[in-house]
Simulated scan of single mutants.
Amino acid sequence: MTLMDHPLSYPEVGATAGQLPDGYEHLVVHRVIGHGESTFNRAAERLMSWQVHRAAGLTVTATTARVEPGSRVRLRLGRHLLRISFACQVVYVVEEERRRGFAYGTLPGHPERGEERFCVEWRDDDVVVFTLTAFSRPGTWWSRAGAPISRRLQQRYTRRYLQAL
């Protein structure tokens, strides 16, 4: 059995769609990325084809070219001896007329345990907003030992995701 065959590493699967669970660090951030249908469609396409992750500086190896429920993705950051590799699985996809996105959950070996949701929304006032929602806690001995560094890395990549659109 490879790492990509394992079940998710946390029990609250799908919780980024509602109230975030207790016992985790919570994150909800928004960024206005523009206005109008064309901005929404472009952003949704970039999000659903893993381009946001690539633009954030991660190497992406996914089981599907487009995000779909059950897709598995291995993300890598860093180089050489400082490379970190971790895997996630898409737990749900949002495909509404004015909202698109997905959430993935962590698999064993990921430095964190939890879930992250990426969503693009075209609001009634014509504003397009990118929202990240997450809950997480350390998932490995080294992320627990280096919790301040892990948090800074998470904050850094959150900013990069927001800037990627």
Rank of each mutant, 00 (worst) to 15 (best):
G23Y: 03
A17V: 06
V32E: 15
A44S: 12
I33L: 00
A62G: 03
T63Y: 02
A17R: 15
V67R: 09
H26N: 04
A65V: 07
L58M: 14
P69V: 15
T39K: 11
L58S: 06
S49H: 15
G34I: 00
L47I: 06
H35Q: 13
M48A: 03
G23P: 00
L47S: 06
N41V: 07
H35Y: 13
P69G: 14
R46D: 13
L27C: 04
R54G: 07
Q51H: 13
Q51L: 09
A15I: 03
V29M: 12
V67L: 03
A62E: 07
P69H: 15
H53K: 10
V67A: 13
V52D: 12
T64Y: 08
A62L: 14
E37V: 14
L47H: 08
V32S: 13
I33Q: 06
L58N: 08
A17E: 12
G36R: 09
A15Q: 06
T64I: 10
R66E: 11
A15V: 03
F40A: 05
T63N: 09
F40V: 01
V29G: 02
H35M: 07
G36N: 11
H35T: 14
P21F: 10
V28A: 09
R66C: 06
D22R: 07
Q51P: 05
A15D: 12
R54S: 12
V52L: 15
L58Q: 09
E37G: 11
H30K: 08
T63Q: 09
G18F: 04
G57K: 02
H35C: 09
H53N: 05
E25Y: 13
P21L: 06
S49K: 10
R54K: 14
M48K: 00
A17C: 10
F40S: 06
R31L: 04
N41M: 13
E68D: 12
E25C: 07
R46L: 15
G70P: 01
A65H: 09
I33W: 04
P69N: 15
R54A: 14
R46H: 13
L58I: 03
R46A: 08
H30F: 10
P21M: 04
A43K: 02
A44G: 02
E68R: 15
T39S: 10
G36L: 07
F40I: 04
H35V: 12
Q51R: 14
E45T: 08
A17G: 11
R46Q: 13
G57D: 01
R72S: 08
T63R: 11
A15C: 08
M48E: 02
S38P: 01
T63K: 00
R42I: 00
T61R: 15
V29H: 09
Q51G: 11
L27N: 03
S38I: 03
N41G: 02
D22E: 11
A65G: 10
T64D: 13
A55V: 03
A17Q: 15
G36H: 12
G34W: 08
E25I: 09
A17P: 04
V29N: 07
E37M: 12
G23E: 00
G70M: 06
A44L: 00
Y24C: 04
L27T: 14
T64L: 06
V52C: 14
H53S: 10
R54M: 10
R72Y: 05
I33E: 08
S49G: 10
E68A: 15
G57P: 01
A44M: 03
T59W: 08
V60W: 13
G57Q: 01
R54W: 04
A56R: 11
A15R: 09
L27G: 03
V60H: 07
M48G: 03
D22H: 07
A15K: 11
G36S: 13
